[in-house]
Simulated scan of single mutants.
Amino acid sequence: MSHPEGLHRLPLPGTESLSIQVSPGRLTLLRSGQPLAQVATVEEGGTTLFHLQEARDGEAEAAIRAFCYWHFAANPEQQRLAWRLESPAVGAVQQGLLLPGANGLLQAERSLFWQLPAPWLRAAQGNNYPQLMVMSPDGRRHPLRAPKASGEVYRRFDARLGSWISLRTLDIDLDLERFNRWQNNPRVLEFWQEGGSLEQHRDYLQKLADDPHTLTLIGCFDDQPFAYFEAYWAKEDRIAPFYAVDDYDRGIHMLVGEESHRGPHKVASWLSALVHYLFLDDSRTRKVVAEPRADNARMIAHMQGQGFYREKEFDFPHKRAALMAVEREWFFDRCELC
């Protein structure tokens, strides 16, 4: 197994961090500088087995979770970890962190690990919200949506960039001027066509704030705002008639406003984070869709690099659009989050 140089420390949301001390056949896991556990490694039948040892009292499950995070972040190609534990890990099995395997082994699957909401999901809204079917004013039947989140909803340290990527809900008073500046940028204006005055943009954002099917978000790198996103429930949206929409599909509109945060490496970080957040926000969401302008080749290529496929082209009243989609199974099976 390989551990990229420099990835011996991983910050966690909040004030804590993970670090690893490597010695032959043994890894010492520290949380905020304090020993959390030791993990011994043994080669058996061509497979590396991990043995949890000397875990802090009552924190065996936390140690397994922390070690899996560090290992999957350090090894993006690694799909599973095999564990041999001295005592049952009932909680870890019940939540899907570990799966029972043959010969008493347990396995951590990368595709399951990244579907666990903690600690990335900061404000869980939809996962446990009961289903009640209602009719929208325009006659669309859809589930009643959970109340909108507020504040920070997602945070993760991107080990490749060495930066925090976070999402928070838009605050009209705080964000109006930057939203206005971004929308009037000629590059943005070409595709969004939403240029206007501060008052026009206040009305635009207030309308979305009052709309239960749309959540407005600000993307931040190291807590500095750089992008605006709209996440919407596709069933109630204008996109619904154009494909076989599911009750919990989500859609996205995307705008990078700060020139210093453009580029494919930044897109890979924020787009994967945005999709990750939407899949975590409600485990019933099977697909995330988008409808960029069909001639926006650069954005479409960025999306395809993150697992979106181009289902078709279709006509909105105001544009020729490409229907782009990424499915939950594909996203997590090929998950390269770190």
Rank of each mutant, 00 (worst) to 15 (best):
M1P: 12
S2Q: 10
H3E: 07
G6Q: 12
H8Y: 13
R9V: 12
P13H: 11
P13R: 15
G14W: 11
G14N: 05
T15Y: 04
E16P: 03
S17W: 10
L18N: 08
V22E: 14
S23V: 11
P24E: 10
P24D: 11
G25T: 09
L30E: 09
L36V: 07
E44T: 02
G45M: 02
T48E: 13
L49K: 03
F50L: 15
F50I: 06
L52D: 01
E54C: 07
E54G: 06
E54Y: 07
E61F: 06
F67V: 02
H71W: 06
E77K: 14
Q79G: 04
R84A: 08
E86Q: 14
G96S: 05
L97M: 03
L99C: 08
P100Q: 09
A102E: 14
L105M: 09
L106V: 01
A108K: 04
S111K: 15
W114Q: 01
Q115C: 01
W120E: 09
N127I: 05
N127G: 15
P130Q: 12
M133F: 13
R141H: 06
H142V: 07
P143N: 02
P147T: 08
G151D: 04
R156D: 00
F157G: 01
F157T: 00
R160H: 08
R160A: 07
S166V: 03
I172Y: 05
E177H: 13
Q183A: 13
N185A: 07
V188S: 13
V188M: 08
G195Y: 10
G196S: 13
H201K: 02
R202Y: 10
R202D: 11
Y204G: 09
D211L: 12
T214G: 06
T214Y: 09
F226C: 13
A227M: 06
A231Q: 12
K235E: 11
K235P: 00
R238P: 02
F242D: 05
V245L: 11
Y248A: 09
H253S: 06
V256Q: 05
E258H: 10
S260E: 14
R262F: 02
G263Q: 02
K266F: 09
W270P: 07
W270L: 13
S272I: 00
A273S: 15
A273F: 03
A273N: 04
Y277S: 12
D281K: 11
D282K: 15
S283Y: 10
T285N: 15
V288T: 05
V289C: 14
E291T: 01
E291R: 02
R298D: 06
M299G: 02
I300H: 10
M303E: 12
Q304Y: 01
Q304F: 10
G305E: 03
G305L: 01
Q306T: 05
F308D: 03
F308R: 09
E311V: 08
P317C: 07
K319Y: 02
R320K: 15
V326G: 10
E327V: 08
E329I: 08
F331M: 09
F332T: 09
C338W: 08
